[in-house]
Structures are given as structure tokens and as C-alpha cells.
Design a protein around this nucleic acid. Sequence first.
DNA 1: TTGCGTGCAAATCTTTTGCAGAATG
DNA 2: CATTCTGCAAAAGATTTGCACGCAA
Lengths: 165, 165
Amino acid sequence: MANEFALESIEVSSSPRERFVEYLQSRGKRVTQQRLQIVDRIFERHDHFDADELIASLGQVDAKISRATVYRTLDELVDAGLLKAMTLTGRRVYEHDYGYPQHDHLHCKKCDQLIEFASDELVALRDAVARKNGFRVTGHRLIISGICADCQKKQNRAKSPLDLI
Amino acid sequence: MANEFALESIEVSSSPRERFVEYLQSRGKRVTQQRLQIVDRIFERHDHFDADELIASLGQVDAKISRATVYRTLDELVDAGLLKAMTLTGRRVYEHDYGYPQHDHLHCKKCDQLIEFASDELVALRDAVARKNGFRVTGHRLIISGICADCQKKQNRAKSPLDLI
DNA sequence: TTGCGTGCAAATCTTTTGCAGAATG
DNA sequence: CATTCTGCAAAAGATTTGCACGCAA
């Protein structure tokens, strides 16, 4: 599920870690080793990931952090506005929400890759639909599914020789 | 999660039950009492529903069908193109896909209601984005979340008197 | 008759929770 | 020091699966 970011990052004044500490303190929560390791690891190299991938990557560098703590911290990071969560194939996947512009995804059914794209038109369309329905929008999630360019190539490469028989 | 359809149905030549039988036979699968009861029940009154709601409704009219069989049959109905599935709040919800036009949803966070809407613009936008990315589209899912008109009213009704204190 | 399908219960998978001890403010 | 956190293990919620028997073709 790892994947490079397609969009430019937004200029932000403080690091994700600083933001998280701010968030924790503002709520009287404690700044623990585990919480810091988790933010650091997430914002150092992850973009789209699920709980298991994060747990695996934590096991390599840091002291082992329990599954429960990872789940609890992920919830806090979403709460703090640093991460965004969505449910893909049954499992929850997360992505950075701090320092990145609003965007949506193309999801490849073959390789599970997520490709990002931003569209102002889409937001306008969304707001128009909502207005028409007296609906107060808080957000949206568009996932376009299909086959990515790479997988189409692979498919053709694998098929062509046989097609000639 | 029950909800009326907002869109007109498309004219279809055969009933969902007939379609399902066709599908089963074309694959050498058997036409069983359970499978028939399930299609009938679903297309007689459900639109958006989850496995549990279906199981509950089956328990009332028909002979009890096991949970496992319901899950297995739902998969087959999706496969047959009669139902569409999406994951909402952790659980899978289904809706009719046969005899209904492509559409998307507004999802109320308060009452969990799904409101349907169709937008050609959205499809055009989707295809444009895909084309730009060399992506072959097979479908998409847009969920606009927020608060529906009804829940906004309820909220105001409950709040106003207290706000005056 | 020949399997495919069903029901049951047990197994999975993912996420959540209760609790005693560890760490933070 | 008073609490909040963590880790562990057990619980929970949803869906899947193995298996023996029943039923469609």
C-alpha cells in the first residue's frame, strides 16, 4: 500500500510531531515515548498505510509498541487532524492529512495502489448537490476504482505472446 | 438504514429473480430454496441494508436461513450484478444494482440515512481524471458526508430553547 | 446417484476493552 | 503523588470456513 505522493505539500509552520504535542497538551494528555515514536515513524516515510504495516515498521526501529497502543494512537492522530482514515478492503487505511491539500483517489484493483488527485470542480459539484438537498457537508470521499497504467501494461505484456498461439 | 429510492427505476426485461436463476445456471450452480427466498426478499422491499437486517427480515417470513448462507448468497448477488456493496461504518451495506441507474450518496452522520443522487457531471469528471492518469475505470464510489436536512432541524429545535438561558 | 449447498459451530480478522503495573506531569 | 498510559490478554463484531448431511440436477 506504500505509494509516493502525487501532490505538493502545503507549507506548514510546525512539524507533525510538534502539532501532536500541542494537541496532547491542550487536552491534558501525556506526551509519551510511544506516542512520539508513532508520529515520527508515520510522518517520516508512510503515506498510505494500515495498522499492521505501521506495527511492522515500528518493530524494526523502535522498542516494540503494543498493538492496542498503536490503534489508540492512530485514533488520536485522526482526532488531532494529522491523519485521515478510510476503509478500503475491509481494513482501515490512513494517510497524512496535515500538510497536504484535500484530494481523492484512484484505486487499482490489481496492485492495490492509491493514486491521488485534486479537483476543485469536484468540490464545487459536491457543494452544489448538497445545497440542493439541504445537506450540511462535512466532507466527502471519492474512490475511482479500476486498473492503473502499470498493471495494464503488465497485463498486456503477459497476454500478447499467448494471444498469438 | 431503510430508505426510499430517490431515483426512477430503469426498465428491465426480466425480474431480479429471473436474472439470478440465469446467473446460477450459467455457472452450473444450483437454484435452491434459500437462494430464491433471499433474492425475493431483497428485491421486494429492501434498498440499502446490511446482512443483519436481511437476516432479521428473512426470519419473519421464510424458513430460517443460516447466517452463513446469507453471506454466501450476498456475495453471489454482487457477482451476478444484482447488488452493489460498500463499506460504511465498518459494516458492509448493500443496495440494488439491477434496474437502477448509477448514482452516489449523501450520508448523514446523525441518522445514518443514505440519500441518493445522480450526476452526469461527476461521471465526466471521473473519466477525465482517469484518462489523465492512464487509468482504466471500472467504477467509482462517492460518499458525501454531513448532516441531513431533517437532523439539522431536530438539532435546532433541541438547541434553541436552551440557548436563551 | 453425484456432487453442490446448507447449517452449525468453530475459526478468522480487525479493532476494542478491562485491568494491573509503568510512566508522566 | 495522582493519574494517565501501556501491555497483555481476553472480548467483541463481522465475516469466513470445515465438515457431515440434505437436496437439486
